[in-house]
Design a protein around this nucleic acid. Structure first.
Lengths: 115, 115
DNA sequence: ACAATGAATAAGCGACGACTTATATATAGT
DNA sequence: ACTATATATAAGTCGTCGCTTATTCATTGT
């Protein structure tokens, strides 16, 4: 029953706005903790904790360089999320197509003076 | 600064495992609250609350039929999430491609007896 | 009008999570 | 060895969240 899956940690990691902003910031390039601390208005420990969550979710990687620790996005980290969505992609597109057809049909009926 | 965006509610809605299971269940077809209450091991109010969250996140719709209230997935609801991911798609694919090339290169080096 | 069924809301509780400050660890430079 | 800088961890606080039970609202049938 305790089937904790990959998308679990990812959704949780990205659910917090501050953490998502940090993550988005990292997509624009590798950054050290001090950089992020300067960029955002929360304490350095808070930044480190967020990075810890992102890391254990597989979304970022660490690299040490002297006193600095640089974090960068792990591109493969997003895969489980993409897969989760893709699992229902057929559903989404099918439904969206059906909706478009429906709206089109209704539009045509209205033009013809139908209900 | 309080820029609460669409993906905010979506990520939050999908972050909870129970709620995500309910949502996934709905992707397999429309269902009434009583159906979901029978399907899952949590109380009816809990189900209704989860559905409320999913609804206000734009992920599901309501339809009343007599005493029953049927919920169904709103296909367009996923769009903000897909867009959010797609916004970095160039990033992901670029990085993934580079990674693949790198791994390939390393593999070739190893075959040639390199480090 | 009444009873029965289905769903939503109210209120409260316990756990978890996102912060904080304080402290520990690691590295660099003198 | 000492000091300064960068990061991580510890401990505690406060709000939020997911759940429960109790109740209310809505609809149907007799």
């Amino acid at each position: 029953m305790g089937t904790a899956v990959a998308e679990d940690r990812i959704f949780q990691a990205l659910a917090d706005p501050s953490r998502r902003r940090i993550f988005e910031s990292l997509t624009r390039g590798e950054a050290a903790v001090k950089d992020l601390t300067a960029r955002f208005d929360i304490s350095q420990p808070a930044i480190s904790q967020h990075l810890g969550h992102l890391k254990s979710a597989g979304l970022v990687n660490r690299r040490r360089d002297g006193r600095n620790v640089y974090y960068r996005v792990e591109p493969r980290g997003m895969k489980p999320l993409i897969d989760w969505i893709a699992h229902y992609r057929a559903f989404w597109t099918e439904r969206l197509d059906r909706l478009e057809r429906l709206l089109k049909t209704i539009g045509e009926q209205r033009l013809r003076g139908g209900t």
